[in-house]
């Protein structure tokens, strides 16, 4: 369940000059509700318009007991050694309750704010080196020396280890749908996190990743209501409530044009609004690629999720509008159906 601000179009996010202040009590409350709703972890996004995701996770982790966090970060912001040091420190303080979502970045403009001037493919090559060094440090098998194109470290060691009851390094989600993202996920990740698509199309695309022994996850939104009609109505009301001005839609077009993310461009280019009876792309133009949404009744959405499970998807990062209500509804109405279906599958092996 993504923790980023919802209900704002991306153009509004980018053009906002106002300040971005974390509302800690509200976020802690959201974390507690997520714990109650059976959510495994919450995504803390990275970007110039947000608080730093590592520091925010430290604060939220101190105030919670069970919920995990998916810390989004990019290479090109800090050296791999201090990155591992920050994460190992975080793990020691919150008992390893986080995974990583490593993204390559999708806005060259924003990357330059941080002094990152590399092209799309070069960023993946750099991230590959970055994560190689991180893995070497997490192995704790002697000093780490690495001489790459983007990073050099000599005899690196850290006295603080990664602390967790069941892992020696965090789970690593790799976001992105391009071939370099897939390669990076297979080489360095534990899960390839894709923007949602129809299950039939997903099946073939994810075979190499599954064969390589990593998981595949989907990032998408949920609009669930008691009946399909109510859900569809809610979806269209959402578009209206965004009060989408033509200038905003224009702005989103501009954003997509400037973006060098393959998945954002692909999602934007989709021709039909309904990819399957339950997979809706109507909000993508205004809220970005992760707004591709499952729309329907609890039973329909549970079945749709099981279809993804059938093709090999094992993790989902959801968002909703408003995200708290949608998450609570998911925990109460959809998750029990999924667990029931899963138990049935277990009882009928093969």
């Amino acid at each position: 369940m993504a923790g980023e601000a919802s209900g704002l179009t991306r153009t509004m996010m980018y053009n906002r000059v106002e300040t971005s202040l974390p509302n800690l009590p509200a976020q802690i409350e959201f974390c507690r509700r997520a714990e109650e709703s059976g959510i495994d972890s919450l995504l803390t996004d990275f970007g110039f318009s947000k608080p730093d995701s590592i520091v925010l996770t430290a604060a939220l982790g101190m105030a919670t007991e069970k919920i995990k966090f998916i810390v989004a970060y990019r290479s090109g912001l800090l050296g791999p050694t201090i990155f591992v040091q920050q994460l190992n420190t975080l793990s020691a303080l919150i008992k390893g309750r986080f995974s990583l979502n490593i993204v390559a970045g999708h806005s060259p403009e924003e990357q330059r704010y941080y002094g990152d001037f590399l092209s799309h493919d070069e960023r993946y090559a750099r991230t590959e080196e970055f994560l190689s060094i991180c893995h070497a440090l997490w192995k704790r098998n002697g000093d780490v020396t690495f001489i790459g194109k983007y990073y050099q470290v000599e005899n690196a060691r850290l006295n603080i280890p990664f602390i967790s009851s069941d892992r020696t390094f965090p789970e690593i989600f790799i976001g992105g749908s391009s071939p370099p993202a897939e390669k990076l996920a297979i080489n360095q990740g534990t899960c390839w996190m894709r923007i949602a698509d129809a299950p039939a199309r997903v099946r073939a695309v994810i075979q190499p990743a599954l064969a390589a022994g990593i998981e595949v996850g989907m990032r998408m939104a949920i609009v669930a209501r008691p009946s399909r009609e109510e859900a569809v109505r809610a979806a269209y009301l959402l578009l209206e409530s965004l009060n989408v001005k033509s200038s905003d839609a224009q702005g989103e077009c501009e954003f997509v044009k400037k973006s060098d993310s393959i998945s954002i461009k692909a999602t934007y280019g989709l021709e039909t609004e309904w990819l399957t009876p339950y997979l809706w792309t109507g909000a993508v133009r205004h809220l970005g690629a992760p707004a591709i949404a499952l729309v329907g009744s609890p039973e329909e959405i549970a079945s749709a999720i099981m279809e993804y499970r059938e093709v090999g998807i094992t993790q989902f990062i959801f968002s909703g509008w408003p995200k708290l209500d949608e998450m609570i509804y998911f925990g109460q109405e959809i998750l029990p159906l999924i667990r029931k279906k899963e138990m049935k599958l277990e009882r009928q092996p093969g």
């Binding site: 520091v55 912001l77 002094g115």
Partner: peptide, 19 residues
């Protein structure tokens, strides 16, 4: 300096200050 980009450093410090 040299371990972290200045923009990210400012973002991390500002986040701590805000919290």
């Amino acid at each position: 300096s040299g371990v972290i980009a200045p923009t990210l450093f400012v973002q991390q410090i500002n986040t701590i200050s805000a919290l």
